[in-house]
Simulated scan of single mutants.
Amino acid sequence: MTARTRRARAGLFTAFAGLGVTAAFVPAVLPSTERAMATDLSAAVPALFGGLLVGVLSSGPLLMRRPPRTTLMLGSALQAVAIIAVAVADAPAMFIAAAAVAGFGFGLVEASGSVAAKSVAAGSATGLLSALLGTVAVCAAVTPLLVAVGSGTRPLLGILAIVPLLALAMLAGPAAPTSPAETPAHRDVRGLLALLPFAVALPLYVGVETVLSGWSAVIPERILAVDPGLAALGTSAFWTLMAVGRFSAAGLRRLSVPPIVILVSATGAAAVLMATAGILVESAPEVALGGLAAVVVLLAPSYGLILGLALDRLDPARSAAVTGALVACGAVGGTFVPTVILLIGRDPASSATFLVSAGLCALIPVLMLVAARSPRRASVR
């Protein structure tokens, strides 16, 4: 491995570390910011994922004209600016706008990072991508701890922008030699017709996950009436539980448990537990919160399993093109599901929020069973 390739890998890991900071920072800082501004900022979560959707969609034209490193640098720079803006925001509009910009930068890095990983991986990119996603989870789990410590001096939390800034500095060095793998395949959206169950399941899953991750600090604060600074630990707990779920599913896969079995059983059980939490949230809030913790563990591996099962049904030559469209489908769910739930339940911690989420979650195993009955491999032309 050359020095340039090593630097490119290091820059990629730092960029994904920035994703972890961004993913956790906005949800973790919500309770203390709401208290400081004396207003409801729940709309910041759909704004964050709305920006992510725009970033994912914008990455296509950028990647067709520029190497992935350029898009990675732009996304990292936007995240750094947004983190500082979130930390110093003194008005709801500024806070929500900064969340949207953070999501936009996140989407650019998420999409271009997957393409860049192919060019710096030794052999298959699977192992490298797994390590990158692990980096996201670790940084996302640590960030709320820092937010909890600095909740009384929110502007100082802008120092977290140092992570995407470090990524920007590392990516700005000499570029690693380019290879054909760096050139993204043209997206063939028609390929989604053969993958309709997966294209529907992804936004449902991402939407439900967004409800739990985006309001991971707000939900325990409102259910248990805890201090907003302490509530930031809810985001750390969320990402820790996500890591537990992902590693547990990986262990089951090593034991040769079929992915469809893991996916259907886990999402089905999660739907039941989430509905139970919706019923008990007012009468037994502690039990409801414990149920939601179990839901996070059960749902954690779903994204990778749904996407992996979809790609198993594709001609390998076309999988890269369709992956981008599937990621965009997921981002749509992360934007619109929390928005719809806010319109219905008005409160992220309401019974209606969890019951609607349970209903959406219950559709996922049905869609996966339908997909399992379809032909094993679909050729996209």
Rank of each mutant, 00 (worst) to 15 (best):
I260W: 07
L363R: 13
T70G: 03
V29R: 12
V296F: 07
A85G: 15
Y303P: 02
L273S: 13
R376M: 06
S302T: 12
M1F: 12
L230Q: 14
V138A: 05
T276G: 15
V332C: 13
V257Q: 08
I84D: 06
G134F: 13
V45Y: 00
L230C: 05
A372T: 09
V54P: 00
F25D: 04
A161P: 14
A176L: 05
A194S: 10
D347H: 09
R9F: 00
V26W: 15
L74Y: 13
V54N: 07
V200K: 07
I279Q: 03
P365E: 00
S236T: 05
A270V: 12
P348T: 01
A8K: 01
A372Q: 09
G18L: 01
A328F: 11
S58H: 15
D315C: 10
A102K: 11
A372W: 12
P365L: 10
A28R: 10
G152N: 11
I159R: 07
R4H: 15
I219T: 05
R376Y: 01
V88D: 04
R377E: 09
L289F: 07
A349K: 09
I364N: 05
V206W: 14
I219L: 08
A47F: 13
S216D: 06
A17P: 02
T339L: 10
R7D: 00
L193A: 14
L171K: 00
S58Q: 14
S213T: 10
I219K: 10
A125L: 11
A271V: 01
A36W: 12
T70P: 02
G20Q: 03
G51T: 04
L171Q: 02
R254H: 10
V340K: 02
A321K: 08
L280S: 06
A321S: 11
A372Y: 11
F13Q: 05
L311M: 15
A122Y: 14
I341C: 10
A284Q: 13
V138R: 10
A87Q: 03
I306P: 09
P27Y: 01
C361M: 14
G50V: 13
G278K: 00
S379F: 15
R9M: 00
G134W: 12
P92R: 05
A87F: 03
L342C: 03
P259Q: 08
I279G: 08
L367D: 07
V115W: 14
A116G: 03
V200R: 03
L192S: 04
P375M: 00
P92F: 05
V287L: 15
R253Y: 13
V120R: 02
L224A: 08
V327S: 07
G18I: 00
A47D: 11
A172N: 10
T183N: 09
A91Q: 07
G359Q: 04
T335M: 14
